[in-house]
Design a protein around this nucleic acid. Structure first.
Lengths: 348, 348
DNA sequence: CTGTTAGCGCTTTCAC
DNA sequence: GTGAAAGCGCTAACAG
């Protein structure tokens, strides 16, 4: 017959024939309990199947040992990896993580964060939708520790961890330039998102570095999935002066670009060179393996968690350590059509 | 200057000039508060930035409005989708979800579940590692509601939601048989896992249905990723009497199989027909689009959450409703080499 | 309609 | 070494 009543510390105390707080001390390895008592208490707790309540402890200590993690969509491989990194770190510290998906919807993000505040999570890791900032400012006002992951606000002085998207965008574009391309298209996304804007900035910078003018008609915006990339590519490729290469905001879009090219009978990389971003697991396994920019995704999640834990420890983190910018890595495969003159790797 | 002190219900009561429980009633829309008081209280709460503490409420109500979700790896697209479904359902009910990854490691699963018990989650959704069952039995003993997702135990009478893996395995294999294949290989996984075993059973059943003998040498076990599939395929293809078709436990392995075939100069589907399982997003976009078995993943997560909520409502669920078996769907694309005689869809 | 009281399960003084 | 008592923030009787 099931226990309808959860065993409390009082039950253990009664069973062990001592007071409640002796049990508390014994079970928490605090000094001031004889070894004999301790053994007896542990035996009682074990036999009764006592499991301490974090709820009760949290009320008293005002620490829940829980982290809130808000991403836009756990279904996106990038966030999936990030989540895994955060959960691994939290688990190692004995922390729980409460996961929320905003679905790139501002209202849902606001509600999720409110829920997390109600739950009194010790701190939060957030990939903000970047539609507005009030609710983020609210966290500061309430002095709830948090760190932004993968995206940041220009006007808000907060902790954040991300990779250098501008550098990544520049590297991708420079590669194409070094291969002789002069008309390079860019598939981008919603410009409020810092990572979107920064990759675009990198693209522009690479062109400008070479003294080239920016042709705005080569920059097209679409959804961040395969079909979004496909549609953008069709728009680019139907133009009279179509590009010979495309750098896409992410791998999913890049795959869509390759698909669109195939639909038009274009061969990759001969007729169109393609570079993506994220190095998703399957990008290496396509018909034409995808050249892409790899983010140190797991490290981003791990660093963000580590930074948050430092904040939770109450250590005052030096301003320089409040933000972490990790470097991405260009992975050259076949879809870009060859290696730049000074690169070592050759496509298979 | 940040509030170092969180606003409590007492602060609101003081501010509004009434008692604590009038505030509680007003804010919880309970009857017995004049409209005037209610308005005043709401204004105070708003102005002070009061956010009720779920921790305190939980201690009293013994309900945390939190679900525990244990998967093996959120990085796996199948689980990512499942997580999303569960989180969406939980969010709609005002519930939080605490996510844990077992990493297919029994000890970590046990620890994770212990953590969730300590956290007094109202219920759990679990994809068990299936190395042992004691800790699951423990949940029953403690009468903590839970439902298994995607995997089940034969010897344990629990709630579960999954898709019919045997039917899926049978459909995949039958398709290949109907196309004339007589030597069909199967790439499988760790047999303790129910979904692995059941897909294999479906494979065997399809062959037996046709009065064919099972050639055990055509069943090879490997890791559940691209490389695992690749290695298995090489083992199968180096055999003297190699198969003309392969059904893989999942799409990642199937992609590995296609890769191995290409490495050996074999063309798909001409020299080797391939069928996967899961219908991951990118499976349609490969050089040879992958024929696969689609699970209603989002529905599995949603049903599991719905079932758990019914359990939490205290409704006694009829035995027939304690388990849900959803039907998978065969998605025929090019990798299987054509359509069975009676199927409608033709590969592109 | 509103206030007083008790207590959820635990940790933390403070006595003994 | 050990126990008694207070209280974390809130809800749920019960009075008034």
């Amino acid at each position: 017959m099931p226990n309808t009543h959860t065993i409390t510390i009082a039950d253990v105390a009664r069973d062990a024939g001592c007071s409640i707080n002796t049990v508390s001390r014994a079970l928490n390895d605090l000094p001031g309990v004889s070894l004999r008592s301790k053994a007896r208490i542990q035996a009682s707790a074990e036999r009764l199947g006592y499991v301490p309540s974090r709820v009760a402890r949290s009320l008293l200590t005002r620490k829940t040992r829980t982290l809130g993690l808000v991403v836009t969509d756990c279904t996106n491989p990038f966030y999936a990896k990030l989540i895994r990194a955060v959960e691994d770190a939290a688990f190692a510290h004995g922390y729980n993580v409460t996961l929320c998906n905003s679905g790139e919807d501002h209202a849902r993000e606001v509600r999720a964060i409110k829920l997390l505040i109600e739950s009194r999570v010790d701190g939060m890791l957030i990939t903000p939708v970047q539609f507005a900032v009030d609710h983020i400012g609210d966290l500061v006002r309430r002095s709830i520790p948090f760190v932004l992951v993968g995206r940041r606000f220009l006007k808000l002085d907060t902790c954040w961890v991300m990779s250098d998207n501008a550098a990544g965008g520049r590297a991708a574009t420079s590669l194409l330039l070094s291969l002789g391309h002069r008309r390079i298209g860019h598939v981008t996304g919603r410009p409020e998102i810092s990572s979107v804007r920064e990759r675009l900035e990198g693209y522009r910078a690479a062109l400008t570095d070479q003294g080239m003018a920016i042709d705005e008609s080569l920059i097209v915006r679409g959804e961040r999935d395969v079909d979004g990339g496909r549609q953008c590519a069709h728009r680019l490729l139907s133009s009279s002066s179509r590009p010979t290469a495309v750098f896409a905001y992410n791998d999913l879009q890049a795959i869509g670009v390759m698909r669109a090219a195939r639909e038009r009978g274009l061969s990759i990389p001969r007729d169109l060179a393609v570079v993506g971003y994220d190095n998703i697991e399957l990008s290496a396994y396509f018909e034409v393996p995808l050249t892409t920019v790899a983010q140190p995704t797991y490290a981003i999640g791990g660093s963000a968690a580590a930074l948050l834990f430092r904040l939770l420890d109450g250590a005052d983190v030096a301003p320089a350590d409040r933000t972490v910018l990790l470097q991405p890595e260009l992975i050259v495969r076949a879809s870009s059509g060859g290696c730049p003159p000074d690169a070592g790797e050759r496509p298979a």
